[in-house]
Design a protein around this nucleic acid. Structure first.
Lengths: 152, 152
DNA sequence: CCGATTATAATTGCGCACAATTAGATTGCG
DNA sequence: CGCAATCTAATTGTGCGCAATTATAATCGG
């Protein structure tokens, strides 16, 4: 008779923190989608806009460090935002290697409409602001430890 | 003089739980990469194998429900696992709509080598098992609330 | 000042992720 | 039975995400 493999708790899907993170990320995406469709943004594009609404006219590198993304991801994404008229891409005069990203008037104006988005997310999460902050802090601490482990 | 926009706390990147989830997911991926490269698996492929190691010979739909993925993602992923010799795809005889996914001997054997993976992740996370379980439970609860909000 | 090194983006190629559509099988209702 | 509604996968098209490579600019050491 065929031997059934012994269960290995650490290998079980539902025991894995990484899968909880992975699947929660997808769930967030699905909740964001209808809210962001109204702004004609994808979620990663929305993140780039969040960065620019905090600090305008920054090199691609800075956006990448903030979002943990590289130019392979950001270059086409930013080109799409430029095609949509939300940002302007110009080479820095002081350092011609840098591509500076600046909001257009349209890009700045979108910020007003974006203010409604976090409310919708908060509602769908059905969390208190305190609970969300606690989870966020735990996750950021974990993320930083994971990123630190990469350096070794 | 140009008016600086008033900061909107809920719009700030570092206040957002979703970004913590998103960026932690990427950090996990980067930690998994070298471990999974040895098994010649990507992370989503590893998840599919975890499902199959728990229950063999299941339809694509069941894998999709378990991983929250649809056939648009799974069909090409499973074809690659088949090309790698880890699984076999066959149409169900009882219901010809279903494509049944079964492990090959090679796919079953890979489970032994995969046992080392969670250890590496645990080390990189620098968490106790208890902390990981607590975060996992919080995230799963959040995920379920987000998914429930989609139904409305 | 020149050549090597380093830094910044862009490009290419591959693998997800998902919406929308299509194809074929099954079920259910009159 | 007959046909509509439903179900399961596959397909197509778009947009990430990242490794690897390339191109160009800046910097550094002799």
């Amino acid at each position: 008779m065929a031997k059934k493999p012994a269960p290995v708790p650490l290998l079980q899907l539902d025991n894995q923190l990484c899968f909880a993170v992975y699947s929660t990320g997808h769930a967030f995406n699905r909740v964001y989608k209808p809210l962001l469709d109204r702004l004609k943004l994808t979620y990663p594009q929305y993140l780039a806009m969040l960065v620019l609404w905090e600090q305008d006219n920054v090199p691609v590198k800075d956006i990448g460090e903030r979002l943990f993304l590289d130019s392979g991801t950001l270059t086409p994404l930013l080109k799409r935002l430029e095609a949509a008229g939300l940002i302007k891409r110009t080479r820095s005069v002081e350092d011609e290697r840098q591509m500076l990203i600046a909001l257009t008037a349209q890009g700045q104006a979108l910020r007003e409409r974006a203010k409604a988005v976090p409310q919708g997310i908060l509602a769908a999460s059905a969390c208190t602001v305190g609970e969300m902050a606690a989870m966020k802090n735990d996750l950021v601490a974990l993320r930083d430890r994971l990123n630190a482990a990469l350096g070794d």
